[in-house]
């Protein structure tokens, strides 16, 4: 997949501070986010393209877009 030198950027949720509101899942154009049992958001890194829409939307600002260490 990644044939560039840089690792792909992916969304990462600080799950301990996530309030599971689901705003991130709602805006993700790739439907890469699901709310795990109403507790926190999880990102399907295979689908995520690192666009950052979710991080912008998150009311608690607990999503970071960072280079994935696969």
């Amino acid at each position: 997949m990644a044939n560039t030198t840089r690792a792909p950027r992916k969304a990462a949720v600080l799950q301990d501070q996530c309030v599971a509101c689901g705003c991130c899942a709602k805006v993700c154009p790739l439907h890469a986010i699901t709310i795990y049992h109403g507790i926190y958001a999880t990102v399907d890194t295979a689908k995520c393209v690192g666009c950052g829409k979710c991080a912008k939307e998150c009311p608690a600002s607990v999503i970071e877009i960072r280079e994935a260490t696969v």
């Binding site: 509101c21 009311p59 608690a60």
Partner: peptide, 9 residues
């Protein structure tokens, strides 16, 4: 003041 849906926090 903050994000639109900050009430949800």
């Amino acid at each position: 003041l903050f994000k639109p849906r900050s009430w949800c926090v």
